Simulated assay, not measured.
Amino acid sequence: MKHRKLLLTRLKYRRKMKGVLSWGEAEERSLKIRNRLTTNWPPVSRGDEEVVFCIPLIGRERAPDWNVVCQLLARTLGSLVHQSNTKWRAIVCSQDEPEAMPPDERITYLPFIAKTGETGKNDSAAKIHQIIEHIKRHGPTSGYAFRLDADDVPHRDLVDYILRDNNGRGYLLDQGYMLDSDMHHGRALGHRSLFPLRIENNTFFKNCGSCLAVFFDKRGTGIGMVLADNLLCEKHTRLAEVSVLAALDLAFVPFPAMCYMIRHGQNDYPGRRTPPVLAPKYWKEIETGFPAIYSQS
C-alpha cells in the first residue's frame, strides 16, 4: 500500500519520469522514521507548543556581499517580529554574527562550529543539525521546528495557524509566492495541474526550501527530535514522497504562507530567468500578509 501511494505521489510531483521507480538512501531513511515512530505514534500536542525557526546563514567569507546578506536576514527576522502570534523563537547559525539583527530576546545567534572533516561550500545541513542540537538542550519542551532560509519571508499568520491547528505531526507549504528583488516580477505558487495525478511542479515546496515544519516533543514519552533530525535537511523537492513513506501525513497550510525571494544576488544560479510580471491582485495580498517586505522595523 505504501509503495503504491509513493508511486502516485511521484507521478504527481516529479518533473521528469526518470527515477520514478528508483529506491535509495532517502527512501530507506523514510522507512526508518516510520519504524521509529511506531511506538510513539500518534504524537500528542499539549497546547503550549512554540514554533522554532532554524535559520542557517552563509558566512562572511563565502558571501557574495555580506552587507546584503545581513539586510536580507534583517527583513526575514522582521517578518517574525511581525507575526500575529508571538509564540516563536528563531535561531540563526553562522560563522559570523550578522549585523542589524532585531533586538528581540526570541532571536538567538548560534556560532557555527564545524566538526573535524566538515568542509565544502554548502554547510547549511551542518548548521541545521547544530541548531537541532541546541533545541534539544535549550529549546522549548515541545513545538514545531521550521527550516527557514535567511532571505525568505513568512506570512504574518503562519505561526498562528500552525499553533492553532497544532496537528502534532507537521506542515508542508504548498502555496506561496516567488518574488523578484525588483518587486515587480514573480509567480504565485500552488496547485495548478491540468490532470488529477500530475504534474504539480508549481507547488511551493517544489521550488523553495522554506516549506517544512515538523513536530518535536522532548518529554519522556514523546517522539523527541526524530522528525527534525531526519527531515529538516531532506531535499525540499522530495518532501512529499518522503512524508508518504514515513506515514507522516504532513498537512498543507491553506493559504500562501511564504515569499521565496530571488534574484537579489545572494541565491542566484546561472541561467535563472526573470519571472513574469506578477498580477496586481497578488501584490495586494502580499502587502496585507507580508508587511515585513515593505518595512523592516
Rank of each mutant, 00 (worst) to 15 (best):
L158K: 03
A240G: 11
P102E: 06
N230S: 15
I113T: 13
I162P: 09
R62N: 08
L148D: 08
C70P: 02
L231C: 03
E118L: 07
A188V: 15
T288Q: 15
F216Q: 03
A292Y: 02
Q83W: 01
R4K: 09
R60C: 01
Y13I: 12
H184Y: 12
C54E: 04
D182Q: 09
P275F: 03
S181Y: 13
I33N: 00
P42N: 03
E241C: 01
Y294I: 08
S124C: 10
N122F: 11
L21S: 11
Q95N: 13
A247N: 14
R15D: 07
S84D: 12
S243G: 01
I199M: 00
W88Q: 05
L73G: 08
D104I: 04
G220K: 12
D152W: 06
P42Q: 07
G19P: 04
P276I: 01
L148N: 09
E50A: 12
F215V: 05
C233M: 10
G78I: 04
G170P: 08
D249G: 10
S22K: 01
R169S: 12
A90Y: 04
K87S: 11
K218Y: 00
P111K: 07
Q175W: 07
H236Y: 05
D48P: 00
Q130F: 02
R273W: 02
L163V: 09
R46D: 10
